[in-house]
Design a protein around this nucleic acid. Structure first.
Lengths: 125, 125
DNA sequence: CTGTATCCCGGCTGATACTG
DNA sequence: CAGTATCAGCCGGGATACAG
């Protein structure tokens, strides 16, 4: 399982790289996954959305320090990669809700484990 | 568990931020963990080292595209954060072995889960 | 409210040369 | 072999201002 020989062959991955236009350099699933959720803020966005859908402004307030432009682009990319959905309500003032897709929710276990590791090894280090 | 209320309080985290000089902006364990293993190449380095210790040159060859400078810095940072060890052999030619620490190996489960997710959702998407 | 446009800057990359 | 030094260029992120 931890054997490098289990890494996917380059050709298989290259198809997906071209197809999905993902920047993958190393032929391993870790790098591939990072291409999707590897942005500086994407894991945080997903982590927040696990708790339920959020509006654009809520996300901006919840994540201190993120630039509007970056938040906007990350949300677009996550939507394009099928991780989140974007629902626009034709109201005044406008309202936009972001939520995880099934694929996005499948990241739940990873995120929980990752968060657990963070608590144990950083906070209580 | 997915409740934001479970996020750690800011003060607790700030101590560690100052102490460890980690760039953490959002007060959640996810962001904290990203401060450690969130570099563009760090997860890949860890993923490779799970398979066993590697020399500097091996890492460089195994990760196509990474700049020597960046690999060098990432290794230093991972060592400083207690994720990997650096053992120098006084030989000619010199040899340097990088390996995971106990703390680094504790990332195994996360990495495996992350890799599994990558295989399922990107390769077979 | 929900973004986009703009400018700026630091970081990553890439190549090469050089040290121990 | 295992890095560091240097210079170059590009890309992404950050802050502010503005638009629908």
């Amino acid at each position: 399982m931890t054997d490098l020989s289990l890494m996917l062959n380059v050709n298989m991955l290259e198809e997906k790289i071209i197809e999905k236009n993902i920047a993958v350099i190393c032929d391993c699933p870790i790098t591939a996954a990072i291409g999707i959720v590897g942005g500086k803020w994407k894991p945080v966005i997903i982590w927040i959305l696990i708790d339920g859908s959020r509006r654009f402004g809520e996300l901006h307030k919840t994540i201190p320090g993120i630039a509007l432009k970056v938040l906007s682009r990350h949300l677009k990319e996550l939507e394009a990669d099928g991780i989140i959905t974007r629902k626009v309500y034709a109201e005044v003032p406008p309202r936009v809700e972001y939520a995880l897709t099934e694929k996005g929710r499948s990241l739940n276990d990873v995120m929980q484990l990752f968060a657990d590791w963070g608590r144990k090894n950083i906070i209580n280090a």
